[in-house]
């Protein structure tokens, strides 16, 4: 387990942020939250986290893509988990993301909301190990 690692969660939904924060903190992580892309950019500058969980659709349909692209440019090795609402809600085909698209979507894992907490924590731990 990777206790004391700091996770950045970026989402436009304040309730989602509060809840994920509570869950991850209960598992021993430190958590920083950012509501929206601009707040997230401020956090990026400070470089004070080990992994980011980024929502895809915030101000724009592709806010999450843009943000994770910027993040990977600053810190290429820092893991990013992209989170998105289910396809039926967004009309955005996600299950069909191809390998070449994945390269373009600078994310190490993609999850569909609603996310089970255990699943997310497992993935966070996996990515933090590979990133040691």
């Amino acid at each position: 387990m990777h206790k004391n690692k700091t996770i950045l969660i970026v989402d436009d939904d304040i309730d989602y942020l509060i809840q994920q924060k509570a869950i991850l903190e209960s598992k021993g992580f430190n958590v920083i939250t950012a509501q929206g892309v601009n707040r997230a950019r401020e956090v990026l500058k400070k470089d004070c986290f080990d992994l980011a969980v980024v929502d895809l659709m915030m101000e724009n349909m592709d806010s999450g893509f843009v943000l994770s692209y910027e993040l990977k440019k600053i810190a290429p090795t820092k893991p990013v988990i992209m989170v998105t609402a289910v396809t039926s809600q967004t009309g955005f085909e996600f299950d069909s993301v191809t390998e070449s698209e994945k390269k373009w979507i600078k994310a190490d894992a993609i999850f569909t909301k609603p996310i089970r907490a255990e699943q997310l924590i497992k993935e966070i731990n996996r990515l933090l190990i590979t990133n040691v």
Binding site: D12, I14, Q35, G36, N38, R39, M58, E59
Partner: peptide
């Protein structure tokens, strides 16, 4: 309208 100022 979704932006930083309207989130809350």
């Amino acid at each position: 309208i979704k932006n930083e100022k309207t989130y809350h």
